[in-house]
Amino acid sequence: MTGTLYLFSGFSITWIILFIYLFSMVKRQKSLEIQIEKISSKLEKVQNSQALP
């Protein structure tokens, strides 16, 4: 393996790790958004049922 290949591996692995971490953060945020959506839709249903005579 030449020095360039080591250098390339070092930089690629670093950026891959950082992107995986950023991706995991986005995924966690998406899952929280889904949870919030579920709660708000349930609350909406309850509000609608209470509004009915």
């Binding site: 393996m1 020095g3 591996s9 070092g10 692995i13 670093t14 790790i17 950082l18």
Partner: peptide
């Protein structure tokens, strides 16, 4: 831990050659 992982990976890649 994320940055420490980068340190522990880039270190050996530099050390080998």
């Amino acid at each position: 831990v994320l940055f420490c992982t980068i340190v522990l990976i880039t270190g050996p890649i530099w050390a080998k050659p």
